[in-house]
Design a protein around this nucleic acid. Structure first.
Lengths: 331, 331
DNA sequence: ATTCAGATTGCAACCGGTTGCAAAAATTGT
DNA sequence: ACAATTTTTGCAACCGGTTGCAATCTGAAT
């Protein structure tokens, strides 16, 4: 098998502790022994067993990265950012795909078995109870893209979805749309609920505005398309705020198949600003979530929580921004 | 911290071995003690520390999942499938994002440190040397979506890209295109090289066919779009085989921005059949890679390699299939 | 040369489990 | 009831490291 500390010690003619200390920073080793150890280690091709050391140190540098968003292209970007950032910080992502079939209990148990130092839950649709389960198991957890709460149970990093809803509404009103639609994501999702609240708040206060609302079955292309096709059968609004970018693209597809086009016949504003949104054939006006900042902040927060395990739960919010492209008429 | 085996043993009034054996299958424990142990474990909320046991058993059930494809939507599907499958088999994916900046050496070292049982390299563009490095480190490795070789250095699961090239060429010829184009991915990638070879083989044997070729800088939307825009400046072919689906979508976007359309003015056939390809606004004719089979087979193969570590390297190939949609004219 | 503080070193116990082995208990056969 | 098996059990050593502690070494100060 692999080369062990003992073999290196023998070869270098020092004690096992000396070898160990060479690879532990802050430990006291003379330059001379360090040299000897490093030489022997190189010759033998030794690298310390991180798992064995975790036994005594109590730190594995393993971070559970849990998500159920394996169909939303935005999350490929999110995973990219998370893995890069964690790697930079010397942490290792243990990926968990929380499908509908897998029971959360068993995922939790397995993460405990692998003694992850912390957990990042990357999902807007996941129930807060799930994140809370980790909290109860005394594992630091950060809920990324989670729901804002003024007194959160667990650390949350994300955007204020209520404000996103307001922002979308204001954007549509500013462009003079009089009949506007809220085409939300799945009704149960907290993100949908919050965005709707903000949206309705602003539109409710405006004069002479007609609002209609409906929901798609999921944050997906098909669901967005289906929902928009349904809209087009009745009297549709002049512009819609869609649940997210993927749904928006589905909606646009529905609009085009019906012989209409955006923004001429119907305006669309999405949410997320995933990479595809700026593809020239999509050119979607949308509200950008600052995913890089959310990711970086989540990693930073989970590391901080590692240091101080009963750190008080904290909510970090980032502001969104309207990205003007070609699916809303100009102001 | 967490509850340990010792505490359970004390509570149950049995030896530590008894507890250990309760959680090791195949071990000899009487139903009576097992009951006692399970009771105590439940009361204490005990779950065995997988890392500690790996120390003696030599198995972590950790599988390194390495990729550099964090921008190709196909790979979100691939990650979804991999994580699900690995989870089903009781294995845990340790995700590694091999960016251009990260040096492969250090990733290898880190995976060794975490004593992963095996490694799956999921990438078509990754150099075979990289996969080989693991092989040399005596870690079972499967190169998924890798290049076929009749005498492979490491296990490979994927498709025969040469045959894909032939298939694309035949499909175009069958539709009567006389002037056809190979719009490949990055020139260095083995997948590009192989597909080109197959494509040229078939077109070279056909009579009266004019072939032109060029390459995009990457398997990406932008690169595909840019490459196609360039084509459109000169005299373009009647139909193109594009490097992959994302590139195809970029190419289609270029075609549309130029006031042309597929398949009327130009035909496009892609490769992969990622989910987006069947979106109604894309409706891309393409060659399907059976990614589910590739993934399942990769997991199966890595498990087999775990059993028998000096199993002979094996190449598993799956056949592709043309999926007819709307970007090529009918036969 | 002597003293003494600070740096370096090795010993041995420990982290949370597993496992070979021999002793103890349960089962079987007569 | 007794011997021969088979099963179950606990002891103790081990997996690959870390770390508190006491012993040793070093160099500066006297």
């Amino acid at each position: 098998m692999a080369v062990t500390l003992k073999e290196v010690a023998e070869r270098a003619g020092v004690s096992r502790s000396a070898v160990s200390r060479t690879y532990t920073d802050g430990a006291s080793v003379s330059p001379k022994t360090r040299k000897k150890v490093e030489k022997a280690a190189k010759e033998l091709g030794y690298s310390p067993n991180a798992l064995a050391s975790s036994l005594t140190t109590g730190r594995t540098k393993l971070i559970g990265l849990i998500s159920n968003n394996f169909h939303n292209p935005l999350f490929l970007e999110v995973f990219d950012l998370f893995t890069r950032r964690l790697q930079e910080k010397g942490l290792r992502p243990l990926l968990v795909n929380l499908t509908d079939e897998t029971d959360p209990e068993s995922s939790l148990r397995m993460l405990k078995q692998y003694s992850v130092d912390g957990v990042i839950v990357a999902s807007s649709t996941l129930s807060p109870e799930f994140a809370k389960a980790f909290h109860d198991a005394k594992i630091p957890v950060v809920h990324s893209f989670g729901r804002f709460a003024s007194a959160p149970d667990v650390h949350v990093v994300g955007v204020d979805n209520v404000e996103c809803g307001r922002m979308a509404a204001r954007t549509l009103l500013a462009r003079g749309y009089k009949h506007i639609g809220f085409l939300g994501g799945p009704k149960g999702a907290t993100s949908t609920v919050d965005r709707r609240a903000g949206f309705m708040e602003v539109t409710g206060q405006a004069k002479g505005i007609k609002v209609k609302e409906s929901n798609a079955a999921a944050y997906s292309f098909e669901a967005g398309r289906t929902a928009m096709l349904k809209e087009l059968k009745g009297t549709h609004a002049e512009a819609y705020f869609c649940g997210d970018d993927v749904m928006s693209i589905g909606a646009l597809s529905a609009i085009n198949s019906s012989g209409l086009s955006a923004p001429t016949d119907i305006g669309i504003i999405g949410l997320n600003d995933m990479e595809m949104a700026k593809w020239e054939n999509i050119d979607l006006t949308t509200i950008r979530q600052p995913i890089k900042q959310i990711v970086d902040s989540s990693v930073e927060l989970v590391m901080a929580a590692l240091e101080d395990s009963n750190r008080h739960p904290e909510a970090r919010l980032f502001s969104c921004q309207v990205i003007e492209r070609g699916t809303l008429r100009p102001i």
